[in-house]
Design a protein around this nucleic acid. Structure first.
Lengths: 197, 197
DNA sequence: CATGCATGGTAGCGACTCGAAACCTTTATT
DNA sequence: AATAAAGGTTTCGAGTCGCTACCATGCATG
């Protein structure tokens, strides 16, 4: 009998708690809750399709109502900016404000973690990443959650040339850096397949 | 430039969020918050030295005041029992009640996760465990948090015979199963190597 | 077009979290 | 005996969070 999966769960859970404490600490000066800090961090990593309340709520595992509350607060504090989408005027788009960026720069919510991995060989980290990524994919597939991946590995991703990319779903050209951001339209580049829509 | 640590952070964070959602779902029937479910799960894994509000608060990253609130609620609902320690009457000890155990049995808060790791080879899981464990240890050392490990690997652990064990710090004899539970008195066995069972 | 309905987001409600600080009781130190 | 320290509880106020209801905008049909 192997209990490794159980232990892995325990570790992820505990690291999650510590990360949460860390976010709490990072936001203490500005009276921010962990979820607020997470929201700000998310904005630094989300691509152009994923900077909406909806996507954020999915990512953080909250309802849209709850998300709306938190975003209202962040807006009042001037840490984010909200603007309407041009094409669909129901959609609200989000971006970090200058002071939001400043806050993240000062608080460094992730530094403690980065520091904690310093003694682990890149190779072992990559292995861990691979195992966790697979777990995440399976988990999301089981629970019908949005996938949230980046372009490489997405079935909509198209490479036009050495340095030009394109999202086949939305039809936009993408810059190199943007292909590494988080996208909630991500779909696994499945083998055969059932495709949606 | 290698961004793997960053990606690892992202994965742990996201899995942590999903786990949290999962706990929320598991507790919904009984009107329990995620933290309540976590507390109950903790009790199934804590050894005799670690079933106190103090240890639990450390583990979950909360203050003792907050912890006290949650435990009060769990006690009112009859999911846990609280009793005084014999030796130190300041200390409160906790245990799952029968209905607490029943709740965990019914809600299976961890099943979704267990299921999500089904396709990953035991070997890769063990590697991931090892990397995360090391990260956890470093993180805790950096932040002076309680270590929270199990007997194997603890400097206080003594093996009396093939099947008899002892905690050198507290002086108690321990049963085999108990040596695999979570202990907040854990201290890294300096120098020597870490081996897995 | 109008009607209907789905979708993205907001508002209000109530139960609960959470840290901070003050407090109580028991144990440890001197 | 006096004082300090440690484990827990209480109280307070701001905020989370799911829920339901609600308001716009967009998208179908006919």
């Amino acid at each position: 009998m192997d209990k490794s999966p159980e232990v892995l769960l325990e570790l992820v859970e505990r690291l999650g708690n510590l990360l949460r404490s860390e976010f709490r600490r990072a936001g203490a000066d500005e009276q921010l809750q962990p979820v607020h800090v997470q929201a700000l961090v998310y904005l630094t990593r989300a691509n152009r399709y994923s900077n909406t309340p909806q996507a954020m709520a999915e990512y953080l595992g909250l309802t849209k109502g709850t998300m709306s509350q938190s975003l209202l607060l962040l807006d009042r504090r001037g840490l984010i900016e909200r603007y309407q989408d041009d094409l669909d005027r129901r959609v609200v788009r989000l971006r970090l404000s200058t002071s939001g960026e400043q806050f993240l720069y000062d608080a460094q919510p992730q530094s403690a973690w980065q520091h904690a991995t310093r003694n682990i060989s890149p190779n072992r980290i990559r292995n861990a990443v691979s195992a966790l990524r697979e777990t995440l994919t399976t988990f999301q597939a089981d629970n019908e959650g949005q996938p949230f991946g980046s372009c490489s590995g997405c079935r909509h991703f198209e490479r036009l040339s050495a340095r030009a990319f394109r999202c086949g779903l939305m039809g936009d050209r993408l810059s190199g850096p943007e292909t590494r951001k988080i996208c909630w339209l991500y779909e696994e580049k499945g083998g055969g397949s059932d495709d949606e829509e």
